[in-house]
Computed example of a mutant assay.
Amino acid sequence: MRKLKASALSGAALALAGLPALSHAQSSVVLYGILDGGITYVSNTGGSHVVKFDDGVSYGNRFGLKGTEDLGGGLSAVFVLESGFRLGTGKLAFGGAEFGRQAYVGLKNSWGTLSFGNQLDLTNEMVSAYNISAWGSGYAIHQGDFDRFNGDRLPNSVKFLSNEFDGFKFGGLYSFGGVAGDFHQNSAYSLGAHYANGPFTLGVAYTQLNNPFGIYAFDPYAMIGTSTFLGKPTISVNATTGAITDLYANTAFVVDKQGTFGVGTSYAIGNVTLNANYTYTTIKAYGQSSHMQVGEAGANWQITPAFNAVGGYQYTSFEGHHWNQGTLGLHYLLSKRTDLYVSGDYLKASSGVDAVIGYSFTPSTTSTQADVRVGMRHSF
């Protein structure tokens, strides 16, 4: 009965929308998605190697609807509803949110788009595409994603994103915390700009989260593999067995502020595009403040129209620790929508740090970790 009712309501809605007496506006709705799956080998996760099925790596799995309606006078209504999910299990990602990847409605004119909902921040819009290693291997985000280069979004937000004017665009976003009596708590904001001129591009952004929570809460050991974080222990070690217990696996490490500045640039020389980026992130908690810096460089070589190679190197420093990571990915297009790829990462951390690549695996029991993946991606 529920399906029949839903079908009847949908049919009635479509019929009404099509009546010329009600509206002469032009509208469209597009269904789209990405499916990514494959096999991954990891050298050391908690003391042992693992071979596993993994998905949403090269690109996050998604299923979405986006639409626009011409309101006349150069004004349009727009919306996006985008769900993230695990291909291996069919379960929803993003904490089980039905439209955890994006969900917004807004108005667009010749200046840009004003929108309301769960939306990508300006770090994603302006600079995260310069994370060249992640184009080679989806695991190769920056350490712990402290700088939000993994394509992150902010809930309960109001956002303006300009159109492009002579290669320049800009935007801003504010995310409401919704805490009674405290306008600041759980809030966030993001600002950014981007410029493109021929073979040259440049992006810059700043994003700040006050009291990060939910899927962006902190589990320091799982994120970067350190035994201390802002002066506090992150693990306990069994003196007899050596077994490690993550102290913040179930209850998040409370952070007052996470602020990240990022800048990225690219330059195309023939069929090779050079990329570089730098981020500076401040984490404040318990009266302490620490800073993570990440520098990255690499290139995308379009060997043939169907085959490309992507390589990148990252250097990270935080609280006296250092990480060096190299990445290589090979991608072959069977068509415009179907891609086969093989990728690999190698991470070497400072002594005493349990290496973990991109907040993607259980930390290693040593200062090194490596992965190799063979996968397939299809878009529609």
Results as ranks from 00 to 15, higher is better:
residue 48 S to L: 14
residue 350 S to C: 06
residue 220 P to T: 01
residue 163 N to W: 05
residue 66 K to Y: 08
residue 60 G to C: 07
residue 283 I to M: 03
residue 309 A to G: 09
residue 281 T to K: 00
residue 65 L to D: 04
residue 288 Q to W: 02
residue 121 D to Y: 03
residue 200 F to S: 04
residue 107 L to K: 10
residue 103 A to Y: 03
residue 251 T to V: 10
residue 32 Y to R: 15
residue 273 T to L: 12
residue 374 V to T: 13
residue 168 F to M: 09
residue 283 I to E: 00
residue 379 S to L: 03
residue 134 A to P: 01
residue 50 V to D: 14
residue 363 P to C: 07
residue 102 Q to V: 10
residue 208 Q to C: 12
residue 144 G to D: 00
residue 310 V to Y: 00
residue 248 Y to H: 12
residue 333 L to D: 07
residue 346 Y to D: 03
residue 137 S to C: 00
residue 237 V to T: 10
residue 61 N to E: 06
residue 58 S to L: 13
residue 22 L to R: 07
residue 217 A to R: 10
residue 214 G to S: 12
residue 203 G to P: 08
residue 183 F to S: 14
residue 333 L to S: 12
residue 280 Y to W: 04
residue 235 I to W: 01
residue 69 E to K: 13
residue 245 T to M: 09
residue 316 T to D: 02
residue 64 G to E: 12
residue 283 I to G: 00
residue 354 D to F: 03
residue 174 Y to P: 09
residue 108 K to V: 10
residue 121 D to T: 02
residue 356 V to L: 06
residue 189 Y to F: 15
residue 105 V to F: 15
residue 62 R to N: 07
residue 160 F to C: 09
residue 173 L to P: 08
residue 10 S to P: 00
residue 37 G to S: 13
residue 342 V to T: 14
residue 258 Q to D: 12
residue 341 Y to M: 09
residue 117 G to C: 11
residue 155 P to K: 10
residue 87 L to T: 07
residue 271 N to C: 11
residue 278 Y to T: 08
residue 164 E to W: 08
residue 56 G to Q: 03
residue 367 S to M: 12
residue 315 Y to V: 03
residue 293 Q to P: 00
residue 375 G to C: 00
residue 222 A to P: 00
residue 268 A to L: 10
residue 166 D to E: 11
residue 83 S to A: 02
residue 223 M to Q: 14
residue 298 G to F: 05
residue 51 V to R: 14
residue 353 V to N: 01
residue 41 Y to R: 13
residue 199 P to L: 05
residue 300 N to T: 15
residue 264 G to W: 01
residue 98 E to M: 15
residue 206 Y to S: 02
residue 358 G to A: 04
residue 223 M to D: 09
residue 204 V to M: 03
residue 250 N to F: 10
residue 220 P to E: 00
